[in-house]
Design a protein around this nucleic acid. Structure first.
Lengths: 241, 241
DNA sequence: TTGGCAATGTGTGCTAAGTACATATTATAA
DNA sequence: TTATAATATGTACTTAGCACACATTGCCAA
């Protein structure tokens, strides 16, 4: 970055950014949800002719007056109405030809949201939840981005209590295990799963039982309050209207 | 990224990138080396008045005609002459005020190089190796970038055979342990260390002994050849002159 | 009302890895 | 020749992971 001083000065002197500011910067959000025992991702129909019929992730250009980390929060708020979300930066993609309209580098974030949240207002009817395990191709390099975010989520979820952002406040161990299986893509032994979760000491027994289930109800748990919001939208207040 | 089409078109129509292409894109390299039982990082003296006397990482703007992943390889080759290096993308930093001369987002990579390599030609005499554990502040947000890369390296090194990029081809277990300790920042038990390394099955016993050491010589090992270059500069050939 | 079913809930033993720790061996140097 | 400082190796304990079996509870249909 030593060269930037001269470069920037030169650019300004010419009153043109053409030479040194010709790469656009965007963020793309892999918004994960969970429903019906499937890991979901929120996608929008691409409006580019090149990608006719394909879906793409939600993203936007980073604004000149916002920190890059704020951009994905803004995208989420604009598209879903959600403010209090878990977000994690994963990787930046910057191949020359990755966007057909020009040079765009993009930073990928994944987000975990509760699809049942009453706040969730999908502002665009081209916006839909898709089963992650059924997605074969996406517009741009978004399949690659999705895969890298899913891989990161799989690594994260084993050691950190982030998965609870996908669940309602109260849940049974069976629901939690179903969610782990949906994310990891394989089945877990129920007894060993319960032992591992107990060992992590993440949960509080609510002394309540499931209701309206067609079988023996299970106990309900919640995440320990001091573990909530771990890594979560500290920046939410920045978006206050 | 749906909006980009319109935005880009508008920008082009106005024959000006001022509005939408006003963020510069750079890469910064945390180049790690190892010498004298210390983890080192290659720094250059900042030439900005704001950061008088401070050092900074090596970086450069991403060129319009190069993939972003190629930029850190180019920086390394230009500055050190090295081509065959281990590089890993870590994180992208994009706060508004992070660069005093203007809006620049930067993607951080760390690199592992053998400081003893005969190829290493430091092209600039303001370029020096610094002990990582003695660095208290750097120009820009580079201390933050250094810390995040060091943390990533510490996580990586426990499970993946990347550390050998910092060592000569032949090394003793003591040298390897010293290096682990320099990276991790704490001491390891020699017997347990040897057991863990043996268990990983990364090494080949060369049936050679250390020479010119002022004590009983240890056996020499090398990394198994099929583990060499793991994650390493596949792109090296792209830089061929 | 009763018995089968399907799910919840718990325990045990094996294996592998991690950790704390002790002693023998070898080359150097005084 | 002997002291020293490093290499080299082994053992017991603890912990986590994994395979696996049985008892309990509530629903529902006969």
């Amino acid at each position: 970055m030593q060269k930037l001083v001269q470069l920037k000065t030169a650019a300004i002197e010419k009153s043109s950014h053409l030479e040194y500011f010709n790469i656009a910067v965007s963020v793309d959000c892999v918004i994960f949800g969970y429903d019906d025992k499937h890991l979901k991702v929120l996608l929008i129909k691409s409006d580019l002719a090149e990608f006719d019929g394909l879906y793409s992730l939600l993203g936007d250009l980073v604004r000149p007056d916002e920190d890059m980390e704020d951009a994905p929060y803004r995208v989420l708020q604009e598209r879903t109405g959600l403010r209090d979300v878990y977000l994690e930066q994963v990787q930046t993609f910057g191949n020359i030809g990755r966007h057909p309209s020009g040079r765009v580098i993009t930073t990928a974030y994944y987000s975990l949201v509760n699809t049942k949240s009453h706040k969730l207002q999908l502002t665009d009817n081209e916006l839909h939840w898709h089963n992650v395990d059924e997605i074969e191709s996406l517009a741009f390099d978004h399949k690659l981005i999705l895969d890298s975010c899913l891989q990161r989520l799989r690594e994260k979820v084993l050691e950190h209590p982030v998965i609870f952002n996908l669940l309602p406040d109260k849940f049974s161990l069976r629901e939690l295990q179903d969610l782990y299986e949906a994310i990891l893509g394989f089945e877990l032994d129920r007894r060993n799963f319960r032992k591992r979760i107990t060992l992590k000491n993440w949960l509080v027994d609510l002394n309540e039982m499931e209701e309206d289930v067609p079988h023996r109800p299970g106990k309900l748990y919640k995440l320990k309050s001091q573990l909530r919001n771990s890594g979560k939208a500290i920046r939410a207040e920045k978006l206050a209207v």
